[in-house]
Amino acid sequence: MLDRILSFFQAVGAGTISAVWRLGFAARFFGMVLILSGSSFRRINLTLREVYFSGVLSLVIILVSGLFVGMVLGLQGYDTLARYGSEEALGVLVSLSLVRELGPVVAGLLFASRAGSAITAEIGLMKATEQLDAMDMMAVNPIARVVAPRFWGGVISMPLLAALFSAMGVLGGYLVGVVMIGTDSGSFWGQMQASVDFQRDILNGVIKSVVFGVAVSWVAVFEGYDSDATAEGVSRATTRTVVTSSLAILGLDFILTSLMFRG
């Protein structure tokens, strides 16, 4: 009995220590990436290439999901608002929920599973096939040459993707609310513009998406660089990237929302 209790505490302790150790390692890695980021801006082509892989290749999924989320918001929002006779507030509902929350959060989740997992898999595979070691032996720092451009590519792509998601969502809401159901187009846009504030709503949404971009890219490059150099290790790292960055997005979203929109 005592043995079981002891081994339980031992397991908890070991888990805590390794979690803290990993977090510290991740933080140091983040610092290294930042310090060695010079070349990803001096040789901007390296970073642009990663913007292509994480941003452009995520466009389709972001645009389509944004459109559908907006359309669903339009339908559900209309249904609810119509009970209180305030259908003309549909534009406000759709745009505020997208710009403040759904745009950054859903785009961030999609970005984590589309681009984040790809970054982890790519870096992990380069490690498993000794490409990173080979680069290091050629006196080319793999963190500067491989990791930093992917990190910054993600950080640049994410806010743009979130903005596209929100814009497509508003259009989707317009399509359903105005074109399909037939609420008044003037009050749809007019009420929206009257109650969506640039600084309070849109700018905060952009800040959220930048924070999510940093979080997802950081998790993705770290998990890739830290993965075990085997096929199984890479696949586990990819899964961890999606899980960790999704949780990070939701947790950070709560913190940011309570900082931004309280009072």
Binding site: S166, A167, V196
Partner: peptide, 8 residues
Amino acid sequence: FLALRVGN
């Protein structure tokens, strides 16, 4: 679009 058309 978000700044001008959706926002104020």
